[in-house]
Amino acid sequence: MFKVISAAKSWDGEIDLLIMGKNTADVAQNAAKIKDLSSIIRLDGNHLEHLLAEDAAKIVEMLSDSYQVILAAHSWFSRNFLPRVAAILNVSLITDVLKIENNNVYTRSIYAGNVHAKIHSKDPIQLLTIHTSLFDACAKDGGDAKVIKKRFTSTNESDKLEVRENK
């Protein structure tokens, strides 16, 4: 989280943090202390405990109007749902970004790490996952971001899915 926030500082503008899940109050309170953040958007509920890609994508879609850049750490969680977000928003997703340069130019690895590609994206929303070990963490305190609670109800489509087990 701290490394993703520091990656987000590559662009000018305010940075908000989206937290989705169950019992997220403490996480949100701690995150509010991060100096670089303007606000914390918090979506909480039992139905978000095992967050499904279908729901996570709808939540990000619902919020996407206000943002020009959306980033996440490159993990099984983001790899699962952010491509879905990208398709819904009709933009590309740039995964596992190694380096962020000016003007939406990125370096990422291809061919199983044998080649680095430098690419430029002209998409209206820059959507990316970052290779966190190559980014420094941001300061963890000194801030006072406001926590904004939002609601999301699962849709019919995702009611078809239920998590039966999570080890």
């Binding site: 890609a53 279908e54 994508a57 099984w76 790899r79 699962n80 749902f81 952010l82 491509p83 879905r84 977000v85 990208a86 398709a87 819904i88 997703l93 995964t95 596992d96 990422r108 690895s109 291809i110 061919y111 199983a112 489509e157 995702s158 078809k160 899915l161």
Partner: peptide, 24 residues
């Protein structure tokens, strides 16, 4: 796919079709 290492097509297709998805 071993070339682009993107890992996106399935999820994108599910999103465009509004179908449920299961990855990995």
């Amino acid at each position: 796919a071993l070339d682009s290492d993107a890992g996106q097509t399935g999820q994108m297709l599910a999103g465009l079709l509004n179908y449920p998805q299961g990855t990995f």
